[in-house]
Each structure stands twice: as C-alpha cells, then as structure tokens.
Simulated scan of single mutants.
Amino acid sequence: MSLFWYLLVMAGVTYLIRMLPLTLLQKKIQNRRLRSFLFYVPYACLAAMTFPAILSATESPISAFAALVVAVAVGFAGRGLVTVAACACVTVFVVERLLALL
C-alpha cells in the first residue's frame, strides 16, 4: 500500500513541476539571457545523463573514449545519427580487439 502512496506523491510532484511554469508564466519571456539559458537546458541535461554512461558502457574506458572522440568528429562532419552510431560501434569493436591482443 505504501508503494501506491510513493507513486502518487511522485506523480503529483512531477505534474506540479511541469504545470506551474505553464500557468504562472503566460507572457513571452523577454530577457535574452534567460531565454538562451532555457534553450540550452535540455542539451545540458542530456549530456550530463549520457556522458557517464558512454565512458562505462564498454569493457575498457579506453575504447569508450576512442568511440566518443570518433563519434564527435563524425557528428561535427555533418553525418547523420545512424552513421555516427555505426562509426562509434566499429571503433569500440576495433579498439577492444586491439586491447585484447596486448
């Protein structure tokens, strides 16, 4: 029964966090600095959640870092998401095999 109450409280808190800004801030935000900050929040949160997982997803942090470097380089080259992911996977595979030989 207590699990139900925990879920109910968590749902309520999540709802309030999303509902309050929508109801309290109905005018367009004019401050350029605040708008810029709010624009980059999703990207910063995504990076903060995925970066630790990237470095711990493989057997060796060396192969994870190599794949990260390759993925960033391929991404900056303007390639699509599937190409970036495929290049990162191939990099992990090759580096893991090279590390196994050593």
Rank of each mutant, 00 (worst) to 15 (best):
T91Q: 02
Y43A: 08
R35N: 15
C89K: 06
V92S: 00
Q30M: 12
R32K: 15
A71K: 04
P52R: 12
R32Q: 14
I29Q: 09
T50Q: 02
A86F: 15
V41P: 08
L101K: 13
A11Q: 00
V72M: 06
A71G: 10
R33M: 10
S63Q: 04
E96M: 02
L22S: 09
I54S: 00
W5E: 09
L16M: 08
I29A: 06
L38Y: 00
L38D: 00
L55W: 10
L68R: 13
A71F: 04
L8K: 03
V70S: 04
I29Y: 11
Y40V: 10
Q30N: 15
Q26I: 15
S60G: 03
A44T: 14
F93I: 14
L20H: 02
L101E: 14
A48R: 10
L46D: 04
P61S: 09
R35T: 14
F37N: 12
F4G: 04
L38H: 01
R35C: 14
V74W: 06
V69R: 01
V74I: 14
A66S: 04
L46Q: 04
S63F: 02
V84P: 07
R97W: 10
C45M: 13
V90D: 12
T91C: 08
M10P: 09
R18A: 12
P61H: 05
R79L: 04
V72F: 05
T91M: 07
A53H: 13
P21N: 11
R79I: 02
A66G: 02
P21A: 13
F65K: 01
C87A: 13
L81W: 11
I17D: 12
L101A: 15
Y43L: 05
Y6H: 10
K27H: 14
L3Y: 12
Q30W: 10
L102P: 07
L22W: 09
F37H: 13
A71D: 03
L24Y: 15
V70D: 00
Q30L: 13
S60P: 02
F51H: 03
L38I: 01
L55D: 08
A64D: 14
L46S: 08
M19T: 03
A48P: 08
P42G: 05
F51Y: 10
P42C: 03
F4S: 09
C45W: 12
Y6P: 03
Q26C: 11
V70W: 00
A86T: 15
R18Y: 10
V9N: 06
L22N: 11
